[in-house]
């Protein structure tokens, strides 16, 4: 008996095709189709601090956003430039210390020290990583894995920047509302900014570097230069997250170089769906609250992330948002072949 052979056929929904053309502005249905997911995300994030009551969960919302930023930074580098960085903690550490210094040593207020520390930290991280940019794949991943470790050991060994005690007494935000909305707006800004960027000329070059760096070289473009730009953008995001954390905890210390900041954003991105940017944010929305529930298990949390990460990688899951976007934009049917 002949086995019936089937395959899944995927077709774009009519509304998607229409919404991509100029008619999108003329009909509220297409406009709604385009805007609904964005509005849900934006409103959800903006309302979250209002909806949760306890200061504890308000804090969780901010931490979600921090990891969302780090996830964005990882996803951008990994899926749009092809640089897989296992050392996100480098940026958080550099940004955190930079902001603490700007605040304590230069006396800058929060609203200046965070942006300044993000940019300066971005420059520092880029300069540190500059020698590794010609490296590919595995090598780049290994070196980036080492960087946060080296820096934290150096701080310890030379006993600089407060050594193991860190820098206490960093200025706080002065209230839960400022605390929440600063990071939420930063996250939304970065998310939509990056989504825009990857379709601009700069973003296309970076995606070219990922697809095929030889062809980029053959086009008379310096690959290292564009990788440096990409690393700067990604590190700035990471430093922003680190600077925010330093002010949130009113302390900058070695824990800013902790493994969590490297591994969790990766897990969040893998779960949320790499290459979608928004996936990294959604992934942190899932992982962080979950890990708060696991708080009583202490460091077993990391083991738990590791397990989740392993699971997702091994079943080669496409990730949540890739799946969701596909379902939203396409319908599927089985066809006989």
């Amino acid at each position: 008996m002949a086995e019936v052979q089937r395959r899944k056929e995927r077709l774009d929904r009519g509304i998607k095709v229409r919404a991509e053309s100029i008619y999108a502005v003329s009909s509220w249905e297409e406009a709604a189709y385009l805007l609904a997911p964005r509005i849900i995300l934006v409103l959800g994030l903006l309302l979250a601090p209002l909806l949760v009551q306890s200061p504890y969960w308000k804090r969780v919302v901010t931490v979600v956003c921090v990891y969302g930023l780090l996830g964005l930074s990882f996803d951008f580098l990994a899926h749009f430039v092809g640089l897989v960085s296992l050392g996100g903690a480098l940026a958080t550490g550099v940004g955190g210390y930079a902001s603490a210094l700007a605040n304590k040593a230069l006396g800058l207020p929060v609203f200046l020290s965070i942006p300044l520390a993000s940019l300066a930290g971005g420059v520092v991280c880029t300069v540190l990583l500059l020698p590794c940019l010609p490296l590919r794949g595995v090598y780049f991943a290994i070196v980036t894995l080492m960087y946060p470790l080296v820096l934290s050991r150096l701080v310890e060994a030379f006993n600089i920047l407060g050594g193991t005690d860190g820098i206490p007494g960093v200025q706080g935000f002065g209230g839960p509302w400022a605390e929440s909305y600063i990071i939420i707006s930063a996250l939304l800004l970065c998310l939509f900014g990056l989504r825009r960027l990857v379709n601009e000329d700069l973003g296309l070059i970076l995606r070219g570097v990922k697809d095929n760096d030889q062809a980029v070289k053959a086009s008379g473009i310096s690959v290292t230069r564009y990788k440096a730009i990409a690393v700067f953008i990604a590190s700035t995001l990471g430093c922003l997250a680190g600077a925010y954390l330093a002010h949130l905890y009113m302390w900058a210390g070695l824990s800013l170089f902790a493994l969590d900041f490297s591994i969790l954003p990766i897990a969040a991105t893998v779960i949320g769906g790499g290459g979608t940017l928004v996936g990294a944010v959604v992934g942190s929305m899932i992982l962080i609250p979950l890990s708060e529930l696991l708080r009583e298990f202490g460091t077993l949390r990391i083991a738990f992330y590791a397990l989740v990460l392993m699971g997702f990688i091994v079943v080669r899951s496409e990730g949540l948002m890739v799946w969701a976007q596909r379902k939203y934009h396409q319908f599927e049917r089985w066809v006989q072949i």
Binding site: L204, I205, K210, N212, S219, G220, I221
Partner: peptide, 26 residues
């Protein structure tokens, strides 16, 4: 400039966007 024997387009980009990359070169 050269072409590659085993073609090297940017597979994830549309054909015309493949050219945006060289068009941005110095």
């Amino acid at each position: 400039v050269r072409t590659f024997q085993n073609m090297r387009p940017y597979y994830s980009l549309e054909a015309y966007r493949n050219l945006i990359v060289p068009l941005n070169s110095p």
